[in-house]
Amino acid sequence: MSDQDQPDRDEDRILAGEYALGLLSPEAAAAFEARLVREPELRDAYAAWAEDFAAMTGDIAPQQPPARVWAGIEGQLFGAARRRTGLPGHGWLWGGVSAGVAALVLVFGLGIFRPQAPVAPVDAPYLADLAAEDGSLVVQAVYDDATGTLFVARETGAAAPGRALELWLIAGEAAPVSLGVLPEEARGVLDVPEALRDRVDGAVLAISDEPSGGSPTGAPTGAVLAAGPVRGI
């Protein structure tokens, strides 16, 4: 490592510590999570803090929870209402968002497009799987760079009443750029503006909770509900 790298490395260590303590703003935490997806050194820095801080729980005495808690868990996960049988959800551990691609889920997801809904070309080169850590929101996106079209399929979850889900492109260190509000229908298309098209590959897509009609500020104002990296198929 050159001396020049030292300040950056220190900054990243501090940032990882702030993230592990939950001190970052939602926007800064989302940007950090986007970097975690593709920076192994940052993951190591975060993991070191997580291990060290967990030691603060070392003197906390175990307490037996009442049986109703387990009953509640079983009911929630395996009750009659459970839909995603046998498929453990996706999710990055860090923070509230998840990243990662389950290509099989995506392929099956595309298979249930309604005939009248927009259908992604089967040979579209990029995909992203955005899932909330608790599985409450799952959105799949397929990007066709030839036309700048982003096909979105909302598998699970929806905007809260009177709220909207807004999709953001986070390319590298850049601030999130809005790609628009997700349609109310489960499936739809968003056009990626020409200026952004060459930034989609390797970027992170994130969904935030916003007022109806989308963020009034041009930046995410609500919680980041789900995120995932765009990957070449």
């Binding site: 453990p88 990055w92 990662g100 850590e133």
Partner: peptide, 11 residues
């Protein structure tokens, strides 16, 4: 339950 499949990802 939902995240165990990614347990290895973060070290």
């Amino acid at each position: 339950w939902h995240n165990a499949a990614r347990y290895n990802v973060n070290g």
